[in-house]
Design a binder for these strands. Sequence first.
DNA 1: TTTGAAAATAACAAAAGTTTTATTGATTGA
DNA 2: TCAATCAATAAAACTTTTGTTATTTTCAAA
Lengths: 201, 201
Amino acid sequence: MQVLEAATGHEGLSLAASHKPDMIILDIGLPDMSGFELLPKLREWYSRPIIVLTVHDQEEEKVKALDLGADDYLTKPFGVPELMARIRASLRRSQSEVSSEPVFTIGDFQFDRSAHIVRVKGQEVHLTSTEYNLLAVLVKHSGKVVTHRMLLNEVWGPNSIEHVQYLRVYMGQIRKKLKQGDSLKEIISTEPGVGYRLLTD
Amino acid sequence: MQVLEAATGHEGLSLAASHKPDMIILDIGLPDMSGFELLPKLREWYSRPIIVLTVHDQEEEKVKALDLGADDYLTKPFGVPELMARIRASLRRSQSEVSSEPVFTIGDFQFDRSAHIVRVKGQEVHLTSTEYNLLAVLVKHSGKVVTHRMLLNEVWGPNSIEHVQYLRVYMGQIRKKLKQGDSLKEIISTEPGVGYRLLTD
DNA sequence: TTTGAAAATAACAAAAGTTTTATTGATTGA
DNA sequence: TCAATCAATAAAACTTTTGTTATTTTCAAA
């Protein structure tokens, strides 16, 4: 594993945005800001595991962290084996979620990562690079609601998270292209005010 | 169970501090101080369940106690079985809170935070963003009475705490949507004059 | 340069969601 | 029993968000 370290909340936030790590270990006691402030900021676009470290074993803190989007929680002091176990568990969970199959299939729809091709009823559908990337994010989180910010961040980068109109235009194009050929049921659902979601059934 | 008794507020406070009981039953009518003073003092460090006993069936008192951090309330006179039931419910709740599963389940009802989806009998129920947020607050405090102002504050923000009518409209919508499909028992109970509660059994 | 596909922007109608208002029903205490 | 209060429901008015289409800009390859 490759490890990146940040000494402050702001540093961590920008490091996370630029390097998109596979997971984050967050100490709630930061010098410049509360971890409870940082956590929701991260969760606006970061969907991988976040493990939180705190000093006090207070029930309240634990519940708060989990409510704000933490995946797991560890109270200091703790042993390294304990931490390693939690890390492994979190990564395992998040990987099984992603489903690393090279070809993702729902009904007539196929998303072929290895060949970088999308098919409907076996026939290839040409998508532009942006369209493909956007669809890839939905596929990665298939079945779950993906927020506007997450989509924009993963496809256009963190500087574009306010351009929701991009999503509208591109979702429209993707839907139109997938609908070519006959009577395919809509596989992208809109969650008004929140985001979009790939329907798995 | 082991029971400790205290006759005054001060005695109770020091007894609670020294013995850290699993839960506290607090009579609001104390000889030396108001229970409403004692409650926040306890809550500074005590995060386990507190059940409050009141003499008058005054809604104002209930709301005040809940807002100050009580978990539940009971109006005198009450039967011992009733008290026992509340105690069991509170203890069960505080234990299950520790393991905050990503998917919250009560009977046929599932609340999936990670996917942002609500299901009844395995079938997805579409909720709008506001409906989902409101239900999320009830789930977060499941089993406890959540006051009107708490709900309004958490969903609409502190400027809207007087719009109780919002709650009536949205609770109606949520109930209707959850009731789709057949004969699901009501899981949201109304606490007249006080708030709402998610029934855990 | 020219050209063409893709991306970004803009405008506006349609859809969905929210808030407000009015009405009805239920409960409680005088 | 009758007010009075609170809750539930229905529907309207209103607001926000989304989908669609058209247009402009960008950029790289011919």
